[in-house]
Design a protein around this nucleic acid. Structure first.
Lengths: 152, 152
DNA sequence: CAAAATTAAATGTTTATACATTAATTACAA
DNA sequence: TTGTAATTAATGTATAAACATTTAATTTTG
Protein backbone atom coordinates (compact mmCIF):
# COMPACT_ATOMS: atom_id res chain seq x y z
CA UNK A 1 0.00 0.00 0.00
CA UNK A 2 1.48 3.31 -1.04
CA UNK A 3 1.65 6.19 1.39
CA UNK A 4 -1.10 7.92 -0.61
CA UNK A 5 -3.51 5.11 0.13
CA UNK A 6 -2.36 4.64 3.72
CA UNK A 7 -3.35 8.13 4.73
CA UNK A 8 -5.95 8.63 2.01
CA UNK A 9 -4.20 11.61 0.52
CA UNK A 10 -4.42 11.61 -3.26
CA UNK A 11 -1.52 13.89 -3.99
CA UNK A 12 1.32 15.73 -2.33
CA UNK A 13 2.61 19.24 -2.79
CA UNK A 14 5.95 17.85 -3.92
CA UNK A 15 8.26 14.88 -3.53
CA UNK A 16 9.92 16.40 -0.44
CA UNK A 17 6.60 16.67 1.39
CA UNK A 18 5.76 13.12 0.47
CA UNK A 19 9.13 11.87 1.70
CA UNK A 20 8.78 13.61 5.06
CA UNK A 21 5.34 12.16 5.64
CA UNK A 22 6.39 8.75 4.34
CA UNK A 23 9.35 8.66 6.72
CA UNK A 24 7.28 9.60 9.76
CA UNK A 25 4.62 7.09 8.79
CA UNK A 26 7.08 4.27 8.15
CA UNK A 27 8.91 4.99 11.40
CA UNK A 28 5.62 4.83 13.30
CA UNK A 29 4.73 1.67 11.45
CA UNK A 30 7.89 -0.12 12.54
CA UNK A 31 7.67 1.13 16.11
CA UNK A 32 4.11 -0.12 16.40
CA UNK A 33 5.00 -3.55 15.05
CA UNK A 34 7.95 -3.90 17.33
CA UNK A 35 6.06 -2.62 20.37
CA UNK A 36 3.43 -5.28 19.71
CA UNK A 37 6.15 -7.89 19.33
CA UNK A 38 7.67 -7.00 22.68
CA UNK A 39 4.52 -6.58 24.67
CA UNK A 40 4.17 -10.30 25.52
CA UNK A 41 7.61 -10.09 27.10
CA UNK A 42 6.55 -7.26 29.40
CA UNK A 43 9.02 -4.80 27.98
CA UNK A 44 8.78 -1.65 25.89
CA UNK A 45 10.85 -0.88 22.81
CA UNK A 46 12.76 1.79 24.64
CA UNK A 47 13.58 -0.56 27.46
CA UNK A 48 14.63 -3.20 24.96
CA UNK A 49 16.84 -0.69 23.24
CA UNK A 50 18.65 0.04 26.51
CA UNK A 51 19.04 -3.69 27.14
CA UNK A 52 20.50 -4.12 23.68
CA UNK A 53 22.99 -1.34 24.30
CA UNK A 54 24.08 -3.02 27.53
CA UNK A 55 24.28 -6.40 25.81
CA UNK A 56 26.52 -4.80 23.20
CA UNK A 57 28.92 -3.97 26.02
CA UNK A 58 29.55 -7.68 26.55
CA UNK A 59 29.08 -7.59 30.28
CA UNK A 60 31.05 -4.41 30.72
CA UNK A 61 29.43 -1.58 32.62
CA UNK A 62 28.35 1.68 31.00
CA UNK A 63 27.18 4.98 32.46
CA UNK A 64 23.66 6.32 32.14
CA UNK A 65 25.00 9.17 30.03
CA UNK A 66 26.65 6.77 27.59
CA UNK A 67 23.38 4.92 27.32
CA UNK A 68 21.65 8.17 26.39
CA UNK A 69 24.21 8.83 23.66
CA UNK A 70 23.51 5.45 22.12
CA UNK A 71 19.74 5.63 22.34
CA UNK A 72 17.54 6.16 19.30
CA UNK A 73 15.45 8.73 21.08
CA UNK A 74 17.80 10.91 23.04
CA UNK A 75 14.95 12.83 24.61
CA UNK A 76 13.71 9.99 26.72
CA UNK A 77 14.95 9.52 30.18
CA UNK A 78 17.64 6.85 30.39
CA UNK A 79 17.66 7.12 34.15
CA UNK A 80 14.02 6.10 34.38
CA UNK A 81 14.37 3.39 31.77
CA UNK A 82 17.22 1.86 33.76
CA UNK A 83 14.99 2.12 36.81
CA UNK A 84 12.33 0.02 35.08
CA UNK A 85 14.86 -2.59 33.99
CA UNK A 86 16.31 -2.64 37.49
CA UNK A 87 12.86 -3.24 38.96
CA UNK A 88 12.50 -6.19 36.58
CA UNK A 89 15.91 -7.50 37.73
CA UNK A 90 17.26 -7.38 34.18
CA UNK A 91 20.10 -4.97 34.95
CA UNK A 92 22.15 -3.93 37.93
CA UNK A 93 23.83 -0.63 38.75
CA UNK A 94 26.46 0.72 41.05
CA UNK A 95 27.99 4.10 41.68
CA UNK A 96 31.12 4.55 39.61
CA UNK A 97 34.23 4.78 41.79
CA UNK A 98 36.28 6.92 39.45
CA UNK A 99 33.51 9.47 39.03
CA UNK A 100 31.02 9.26 41.80
CA UNK A 101 28.45 11.31 39.87
CA UNK A 102 28.20 8.52 37.35
CA UNK A 103 26.34 5.27 37.75
CA UNK A 104 27.62 2.14 36.06
CA UNK A 105 24.92 -0.03 34.62
CA UNK A 106 25.37 -3.60 33.43
CA UNK A 107 23.13 -6.30 32.12
CA UNK A 108 22.25 -9.36 34.22
CA UNK A 109 21.97 -12.91 32.83
CA UNK A 110 18.19 -12.61 32.94
CA UNK A 111 18.49 -9.52 30.74
CA UNK A 112 20.69 -11.28 28.22
CA UNK A 113 18.30 -14.21 28.14
CA UNK A 114 15.36 -11.92 27.45
CA UNK A 115 17.25 -10.15 24.70
CA UNK A 116 18.04 -13.42 22.99
CA UNK A 117 14.46 -14.57 23.28
CA UNK A 118 13.16 -11.39 21.69
CA UNK A 119 15.87 -11.37 19.04
CA UNK A 120 14.46 -14.59 17.64
CA UNK A 121 11.20 -12.81 16.91
CA UNK A 122 12.97 -9.75 15.61
CA UNK A 123 14.91 -11.95 13.21
CA UNK A 124 11.65 -13.23 11.80
CA UNK A 125 10.50 -9.65 11.42
CA UNK A 126 13.70 -8.68 9.66
CA UNK A 127 13.65 -11.74 7.49
CA UNK A 128 10.51 -10.39 5.82
CA UNK A 129 12.36 -7.22 5.03
CA UNK A 130 15.14 -9.14 3.30
CA UNK A 131 12.70 -9.60 0.44
CA UNK A 132 13.77 -6.15 -0.68
CA UNK A 133 17.22 -7.42 -1.43
CA UNK A 134 20.61 -6.37 -0.10
CA UNK A 135 21.18 -3.73 -2.74
CA UNK A 136 17.89 -1.97 -2.13
CA UNK A 137 18.44 -1.99 1.61
CA UNK A 138 21.90 -0.50 1.24
CA UNK A 139 20.45 2.16 -0.97
CA UNK A 140 17.71 2.86 1.54
CA UNK A 141 20.26 3.23 4.34
CA UNK A 142 22.32 5.58 2.24
CA UNK A 143 19.33 7.70 1.30
CA UNK A 144 18.30 7.94 4.94
CA UNK A 145 21.76 9.10 5.98
CA UNK A 146 21.76 11.63 3.14
CA UNK A 147 18.30 12.76 4.10
CA UNK A 148 19.31 13.61 7.65
CA UNK A 149 22.54 15.17 6.42
CA UNK A 150 20.59 17.53 4.18
CA UNK A 151 18.89 19.09 7.18
CA UNK A 152 20.92 21.63 9.11
CA UNK B 1 26.48 11.73 10.01
CA UNK B 2 25.82 8.06 9.32
CA UNK B 3 23.48 6.10 11.54
CA UNK B 4 26.53 4.27 12.92
CA UNK B 5 27.94 7.50 14.27
CA UNK B 6 24.61 8.87 15.42
CA UNK B 7 24.02 6.07 17.84
CA UNK B 8 27.68 5.14 18.29
CA UNK B 9 27.21 1.61 17.04
CA UNK B 10 30.15 0.49 14.96
CA UNK B 11 28.47 -2.34 13.09
CA UNK B 12 25.09 -3.96 12.53
CA UNK B 13 24.09 -7.59 12.41
CA UNK B 14 22.93 -7.13 8.81
CA UNK B 15 21.53 -4.57 6.41
CA UNK B 16 17.95 -5.29 7.52
CA UNK B 17 18.72 -4.49 11.14
CA UNK B 18 20.47 -1.32 10.11
CA UNK B 19 17.52 -0.25 7.95
CA UNK B 20 15.01 -0.80 10.75
CA UNK B 21 17.06 1.25 13.19
CA UNK B 22 17.82 3.88 10.59
CA UNK B 23 14.12 4.28 9.79
CA UNK B 24 13.09 4.64 13.41
CA UNK B 25 15.93 7.07 14.02
CA UNK B 26 15.20 9.16 10.95
CA UNK B 27 11.48 9.25 11.75
CA UNK B 28 12.25 10.47 15.27
CA UNK B 29 14.67 12.98 13.84
CA UNK B 30 12.04 14.55 11.61
CA UNK B 31 9.36 14.51 14.28
CA UNK B 32 11.66 16.29 16.71
CA UNK B 33 12.56 18.96 14.17
CA UNK B 34 8.98 19.58 13.25
CA UNK B 35 7.81 19.59 16.85
CA UNK B 36 10.42 22.26 17.57
CA UNK B 37 9.27 24.20 14.54
CA UNK B 38 5.67 24.21 15.70
CA UNK B 39 6.22 24.86 19.34
CA UNK B 40 6.38 28.68 18.97
CA UNK B 41 2.92 28.49 17.44
CA UNK B 42 1.52 26.70 20.47
CA UNK B 43 0.56 23.60 18.56
CA UNK B 44 1.80 20.01 18.45
CA UNK B 45 2.60 18.05 15.30
CA UNK B 46 -0.42 15.85 15.79
CA UNK B 47 -2.69 18.82 16.17
CA UNK B 48 -1.14 20.38 13.09
CA UNK B 49 -1.70 17.17 11.20
CA UNK B 50 -5.40 17.27 12.05
CA UNK B 51 -5.58 20.91 11.01
CA UNK B 52 -3.91 20.04 7.72
CA UNK B 53 -6.43 17.29 7.09
CA UNK B 54 -9.26 19.71 7.71
CA UNK B 55 -7.64 22.32 5.50
CA UNK B 56 -7.44 19.72 2.76
CA UNK B 57 -11.22 19.49 2.92
CA UNK B 58 -11.43 23.05 1.65
CA UNK B 59 -13.88 24.21 4.25
CA UNK B 60 -16.03 21.11 4.03
CA UNK B 61 -16.76 19.24 7.24
CA UNK B 62 -15.34 15.81 8.05
CA UNK B 63 -16.13 13.34 10.81
CA UNK B 64 -13.78 12.45 13.65
CA UNK B 65 -13.53 8.93 12.26
CA UNK B 66 -12.46 10.17 8.84
CA UNK B 67 -9.83 12.29 10.52
CA UNK B 68 -8.47 9.19 12.26
CA UNK B 69 -8.24 7.35 8.93
CA UNK B 70 -6.13 10.14 7.49
CA UNK B 71 -3.85 10.57 10.47
CA UNK B 72 -0.25 9.43 10.40
CA UNK B 73 -0.53 7.86 13.82
CA UNK B 74 -3.86 6.08 13.91
CA UNK B 75 -3.45 5.17 17.57
CA UNK B 76 -3.76 8.66 18.87
CA UNK B 77 -7.09 10.01 19.88
CA UNK B 78 -8.63 12.23 17.21
CA UNK B 79 -11.44 13.15 19.55
CA UNK B 80 -9.07 14.67 22.08
CA UNK B 81 -6.97 16.33 19.41
CA UNK B 82 -10.07 18.00 18.01
CA UNK B 83 -10.88 19.04 21.57
CA UNK B 84 -7.56 20.82 21.85
CA UNK B 85 -8.03 22.58 18.52
CA UNK B 86 -11.54 23.56 19.53
CA UNK B 87 -10.25 25.04 22.79
CA UNK B 88 -7.84 27.13 20.71
CA UNK B 89 -10.74 28.25 18.49
CA UNK B 90 -9.03 26.84 15.40
CA UNK B 91 -11.82 24.44 14.50
CA UNK B 92 -15.52 24.11 15.08
CA UNK B 93 -17.70 21.04 15.36
CA UNK B 94 -21.32 20.11 15.20
CA UNK B 95 -23.32 16.92 15.49
CA UNK B 96 -23.95 15.40 12.09
CA UNK B 97 -27.63 15.44 11.20
CA UNK B 98 -27.59 12.41 8.94
CA UNK B 99 -25.85 10.26 11.54
CA UNK B 100 -26.18 11.69 14.97
CA UNK B 101 -23.38 9.52 16.35
CA UNK B 102 -20.94 11.35 14.12
CA UNK B 103 -19.52 14.81 14.70
CA UNK B 104 -18.65 17.04 11.79
CA UNK B 105 -15.49 19.02 12.25
CA UNK B 106 -14.36 21.94 10.13
CA UNK B 107 -11.53 24.38 10.16
CA UNK B 108 -12.05 28.02 11.13
CA UNK B 109 -10.33 30.96 9.41
CA UNK B 110 -7.97 31.24 12.38
CA UNK B 111 -7.00 27.61 11.79
CA UNK B 112 -6.32 28.17 8.10
CA UNK B 113 -4.27 31.24 8.93
CA UNK B 114 -2.16 29.27 11.39
CA UNK B 115 -1.63 26.47 8.89
CA UNK B 116 -0.41 28.92 6.26
CA UNK B 117 1.90 30.58 8.72
CA UNK B 118 3.47 27.27 9.71
CA UNK B 119 3.63 26.03 6.12
CA UNK B 120 6.07 28.84 5.32
CA UNK B 121 8.49 27.39 7.86
CA UNK B 122 7.83 23.85 6.70
CA UNK B 123 8.65 24.89 3.16
CA UNK B 124 12.03 26.10 4.34
CA UNK B 125 12.55 22.79 6.06
CA UNK B 126 11.61 20.87 2.94
CA UNK B 127 13.71 23.11 0.74
CA UNK B 128 16.79 21.75 2.49
CA UNK B 129 15.69 18.25 1.63
CA UNK B 130 15.42 19.11 -2.05
CA UNK B 131 19.22 19.02 -2.11
CA UNK B 132 18.85 15.28 -2.50
CA UNK B 133 17.32 15.73 -5.90
CA UNK B 134 13.96 14.70 -7.28
CA UNK B 135 15.17 11.28 -8.45
CA UNK B 136 16.64 10.29 -5.10
CA UNK B 137 13.50 11.40 -3.29
CA UNK B 138 11.29 9.40 -5.62
CA UNK B 139 13.49 6.40 -5.04
CA UNK B 140 13.32 6.92 -1.29
CA UNK B 141 9.54 7.08 -1.38
CA UNK B 142 9.39 3.92 -3.44
CA UNK B 143 11.74 2.05 -1.13
CA UNK B 144 9.68 3.11 1.88
CA UNK B 145 6.48 1.85 0.28
CA UNK B 146 8.19 -1.41 -0.62
CA UNK B 147 9.61 -1.69 2.87
CA UNK B 148 6.18 -1.54 4.50
CA UNK B 149 4.74 -3.83 1.87
CA UNK B 150 7.36 -6.47 2.69
CA UNK B 151 6.03 -6.74 6.24
CA UNK B 152 2.92 -8.82 6.67
C1' DC C 1 -40.79 -4.56 15.11
C1' DA C 2 -37.69 -5.61 18.97
C1' DA C 3 -33.38 -7.40 20.45
C1' DA C 4 -28.71 -7.89 19.36
C1' DA C 5 -24.79 -6.29 17.05
C1' DT C 6 -22.19 -2.66 15.25
C1' DT C 7 -20.49 1.93 14.86
C1' DA C 8 -18.96 6.81 16.35
C1' DA C 9 -17.29 9.57 19.67
C1' DA C 10 -16.14 10.59 24.30
C1' DT C 11 -14.23 9.48 28.64
C1' DG C 12 -11.34 6.98 32.31
C1' DT C 13 -7.09 5.41 33.68
C1' DT C 14 -2.47 3.96 33.76
C1' DT C 15 1.86 4.73 32.02
C1' DA C 16 5.20 7.33 29.29
C1' DT C 17 7.12 11.58 27.48
C1' DA C 18 9.07 16.16 27.51
C1' DC C 19 11.22 19.34 29.85
C1' DA C 20 12.73 21.86 33.96
C1' DT C 21 14.81 21.64 38.22
C1' DT C 22 17.59 19.76 41.83
C1' DA C 23 21.47 17.49 44.18
C1' DA C 24 25.87 15.75 44.22
C1' DT C 25 30.30 15.61 42.41
C1' DT C 26 34.08 17.09 39.65
C1' DA C 27 36.80 20.40 36.88
C1' DC C 28 38.61 24.71 36.40
C1' DA C 29 40.19 29.40 37.11
C1' DA C 30 41.30 33.43 39.80
C1' DT D 1 42.66 27.03 47.71
C1' DT D 2 38.29 28.36 47.06
C1' DG D 3 34.56 29.84 44.75
C1' DT D 4 32.36 29.19 40.06
C1' DA D 5 31.12 26.54 36.35
C1' DA D 6 30.14 22.24 34.35
C1' DT D 7 28.74 17.52 34.46
C1' DT D 8 25.96 13.36 35.89
C1' DA D 9 21.93 11.38 37.46
C1' DA D 10 17.68 11.69 39.70
C1' DT D 11 13.37 13.77 40.53
C1' DG D 12 9.11 16.88 39.83
C1' DT D 13 5.45 17.97 37.03
C1' DA D 14 2.38 18.90 33.39
C1' DT D 15 0.89 16.93 29.30
C1' DA D 16 0.26 13.21 25.98
C1' DA D 17 -0.14 8.36 24.54
C1' DA D 18 -2.05 3.83 24.79
C1' DC D 19 -5.81 1.20 25.56
C1' DA D 20 -10.07 -0.15 27.58
C1' DT D 21 -14.60 1.13 28.62
C1' DT D 22 -18.83 3.72 28.18
C1' DT D 23 -22.62 6.11 25.97
C1' DA D 24 -25.49 7.04 22.33
C1' DA D 25 -27.11 6.15 17.81
C1' DT D 26 -27.72 3.23 13.96
C1' DT D 27 -27.91 -1.13 11.47
C1' DT D 28 -28.86 -5.81 11.15
C1' DT D 29 -31.35 -9.89 12.12
C1' DG D 30 -34.62 -13.14 13.83
Amino acid sequence: MSISDEIKQSSFKNEETKAVINLIFTGNFIVQRQQALMKPFGITMQQFNVLRILEGQKGQAISVLSITERMLDKMSNASRLVDKLFAKKLVSRIQCEKDRRAVDVYILPAGSALINQIEVHLDEFRKQISQLGEENLKQLNELLDQFRASIS
